[in-house]
Design a protein around this nucleic acid. Structure first.
Lengths: 155, 155
DNA sequence: GACTTCCTACTCGGATACTGGCTGTCCGAGTTCTGAGGG
DNA sequence: CCCTCAGAACTCGGACAGCCAGTATCCGAGTAGGAAGTC
């Protein structure tokens, strides 16, 4: 899985806490990552409609909807793409004992098993929202530190 | 995910049906894939202890245990490795607002969510064995074709 | 006929090049705010 | 005092190199079986 997914999730968590647009440069500095590369991930989030960008001074990125309406899966699919990790190449239709295509109305058992596992994975991630992550962070970190983070974002 | 996983699974299904060792070259011809590259995947299966190789004439690969005792996850982990797709880089410990390492006794919420999804994925794949795949194939393909395949393997 | 020996053919195993996608970087297009100048 | 306008600084967006895992390939090491030769 692309490493940018982690950055994208962290950014969404931060954006949900900030009340104003946050420029990409600030997000990059906060997480100590390459500004140019993070910009690429934010572009992907923007294309997927998860965040909205505003130009000019005091511009930056904002979530387009409530953090409770953005699932972790949304972010992953926005950055890594929505296609499943396993792609059946229809091996059974090749070689000397190839099954004719007309008999392949049902998917290959292997592909079916893989698809089921993929669904389980996605379902697990679809059940968690950015708001859940924020709640978890709020519970495990002292309030003083959260205030400091919010102040740093405004500055 | 590595494409070799698909080949490895197909090979395990075939090996479970063949009563004698099957050389890599035959498996490659049967699936119409590169012999040299398939050999690499079979080596990985061998290192993981899923198959046993015998040299010389009439040599080849055999499953080391019953098909009902080999899960799909076993094959995937043998070829693609057992490490999870998501690796937390501890972003929270970096940047101007870094959380000190001493406070990071609990894993990052993002990592926790990812790990849970990964467990769901693996659990789904752990529940299916090669024998299940074979049973599925036997049910959906005519017996005549299965006999033809077994005869081809012996030749 | 049975045993020994050698030889051939066949097998796997690891070491070696090549390629696509992720990683990382850069500069240009566009917008908003600010400040000066004029009415 | 208010409006207009030009400028500057800041923002995002897409286009451009670099590197590593996965892909594909090759040849060498080792073994099992069989055929020939000998007792």
């Amino acid at each position: 899985m692309s490493g940018g997914v982690e950055w994208g999730l962290h950014c969404c968590v931060v954006l949900s806490g900030a009340g104003a647009p946050v420029p990409a440069a600030k997000l990059a500095e906060l997480h100590d990552v390459s500004q140019s590369y993070l910009a690429k991930q934010l572009q992907l989030l923007s294309r997927a409609g998860l965040v909205r960008s505003s130009l000019g001074q005091a511009g930056g990125y904002v979530l387009t909807r409530s953090a409770s309406e953005i699932t972790v899966l949304d972010v992953i699919e926005a950055i890594d793409g929505a296609q499943p990790a396993f792609r059946c190449t229809e091996v059974r239709q090749r070689g000397p004992l190839a099954t004719p295509a007309e008999r392949c109305d049902t998917p290959c058992p292997i592909a079916r098993v893989m698809a089921a596992a993929d669904r389980a994975w996605r379902e697990s991630l679809r059940g968690i929202t950015i708001a859940d992550l924020v709640a978890d962070v709020s519970r495990t970190t002292p309030a003083e530190q959260l205030d400091r983070a919010r102040a740093w974002l405004r500055a």
